[in-house]
Design a protein around this nucleic acid. Structure first.
Length: 468
RNA sequence: GUCCCCUUCGUCUAGUGGCCUAGGACAUCGGCCUCUCACGCCGAAAACAGGGGUUCGACUCCCCUAGGGGACGCCA
């Protein structure tokens, strides 16, 4: 059997984190089985769908590296086909016209609620004589659902789920204005696209029962269902803007790498023993629906950060430089020149050990790009008292004539100096760091000195000591 | 309210009746390393929602309760 999955977002907003995970699972499942992964934009709600949202979703998927097969399907383009299916259903007696007004339905629901019953359509037009149709009310078309009995769906994630058929009402296929509803469109499109496995959020679990019977009414095979749990905010409540229902573009802007987000999302609900850092290749090889959990998971930024730090450390230096460059130049207020770029090149390996996000990295990279006089942080300024400055003056004269300017030679010379003046090494390393970087944290001081180079070190020391 | 789903450390999870003295990861707290901060390493604290069954034996199976979530639109 050829596996064909799909991601079917409605373009009423950005691609949020939950949608991204649904897309990831669909993508992984199809890739694992050598099948295809399709994208369908559910834009039948013409009022709320926007081109901006469509772009946002497409960009988000591309950034995450979730490539889809074939053309993007726009559901709105299939409206005629959806209507045609309803004509068939009408002809085969599986659907009927209902002349209830919205007001009548509201009233019906209110009564059901008051009586403690399920708020369902009571099928009052199902067997009514069409001749009784009021001439002034345009009808909606409803599908006939089975009466009595129960329906069982063997969900690939949730297991066997059973629902009594009296919980399933005759839902609307075509609105009074003749446009198809979501419930109709998904079924027809999934069928037409040959979708074999429908993997989606479990907020659709109830819908699956209705759709199941619509497939039957059309005489079609029912695809496999897999309803994955939703993602909640850190507090366990529904994800809101406040805590993570952000577009994936927001995660990109916060400095997360797409592979880190992918890894994080994968582990939210899916597991492979004790494995935590899972490459995309491994994920494709390992992914299955059996290992998807049934409980909702909470968003945990700390873990995402940790994962991100991991991937940053593994990343290629040049890729990272490209990624942080815009922010770096913005903080600097000028374009990075050749010597600075060279230093970044040499220094990135040391910098990336210390960063969890791209902004962290950009911030840390500042030390190699600033020009004298360096801005000195308050904490660094405290390390530059009179005592320290006089030591730094000595150091400048000691270091200037060094024949070899490498980590080993610098270390030897500095340690000697400390011994002679009876100081602990930290006593001189920290002021030196403050003078050379303007901050109190940086990679190893000898690494910084070699990357900066003799001239720049002298320049920065002079700027602090006031010596020429 | 009705229906459906869920419930292992703070969080993500391993666990599919005996391997569990419940494992890993993140976070937390100690310590080591050390020129700072990270990284790395070592260690600690931390959970089977509650109650009934079934069984020689339940985290694992069944039932009930509680809690959480979702769905009940001429939205998708």
């Amino acid at each position: 059997m050829t596996v064909i999955t799909r991601f079917a977002p409605s373009p009423t907003g950005f691609l949020h984190i939950g949608g991204a995970r649904t897309a990831l699972f669909n993508w992984l499942f199809s890739r694992h089985h050598g099948g295809s992964f399709r994208l369908r934009i559910e834009d039948t709600d013409r009022k709320r769908s926007t081109p901006e949202a469509i772009d946002g979703i497409l960009d988000g998927l591309r950034w995450l590296g979730l490539d889809w097969d074939g053309d993007t399907v726009y559901q709105s383009a299939n409206a005629a086909r959806h209507v045609a299916v309803v004509d068939q259903l009408l002809a085969s007696g599986n659907a009927y016209r209902c002349y209830c007004t919205p007001e009548e339905l509201t009233e019906m629901r209110a009564q059901a609620k008051a009586a403690g019953r399920a708020q369902l359509y009571d099928r009052r037009w199902r067997d009514r004589d069409p001749a009784a149709a009021p001439p002034d009310i345009p009808p909606v078309i409803r599908v006939k659902m089975p009466i009595g009995g129960q329906t069982v769906i063997d969900d690939l994630v949730q297991g066997e789920v059973t629902v009594a058929n009296d919980q399933l009402d005759d839902f609307i296929l075509l609105r009074a204005d003749g446009t198809p509803t979501y419930m109709l469109s998904v079924v027809v499109d999934d069928r037409d696209m040959g979708i074999s496995h429908i993997i989606r959020g479990d907020d659709h679990l109830n819908n699956a029962f209705r759709q199941y019977h619509l497939y039957g009414a059309c005489g079609w095979d029912v695809p496999a269902f897999a309803h994955i749990p939703l993602i909640h905010g850190p507090d366990g409540a529904k994800l809101s803007k406040r805590h993570g229902a952000l577009g994936v573009d927001a995660y990109r802007d916060m400095g997360y790498l797409p592979e880190a987000l992918r890894n994080y999302l994968l582990r939210l609900g899916w597991s492979h023993g004790d494995d935590e850092i899972i490459s995309t290749e491994q994920a494709v090889a390992w992914f299955d629906l059996d290992s998807v959990g049934r409980a909702a998971a909470r968003m945990d930024f700390a873990k995402l950060e940790s994962l991100n730090g991991n991937y940053i450390r593994q990343s290629d230096d040049h890729r990272l430089i490209d990624l942080i460059r815009p922010q770096l130049e913005q903080m600097l207020g000028y374009a990075i020149a050749e010597p600075e770029l060279e230093r970044l090149d040499k220094g990135l390996a040391g910098l990336k050990q210390r960063a969890k996000t791209l902004p962290d990295l950009a911030e840390a990279a500042l030390i190699y790009c600033r020009r004298v006089p360096l801005p000195i942080t308050d904490a660094a300024a405290k390390l530059l008292g009179n005592d320290s400055v006089s030591h730094l003056k000595h150091l400048a004269t000691l270091l200037r004539p060094l024949t070899m300017w490498d980590e080993a030679s610098l270390e030897t010379r500095l340690r000697e100096y400390c011994e002679q003046s009876g100081m602990k090494f930290g006593k001189i390393a920290q002021p030196l760091r403050a003078a050379l970087t303007g901050t109190t944290t940086s990679p190893g001081i000898f690494e910084v000195m070699t990357i900066l180079g003799r001239e720049e070190v002298m320049r920065r020391l002079a700027a602090v000591t006031g010596e020429p």
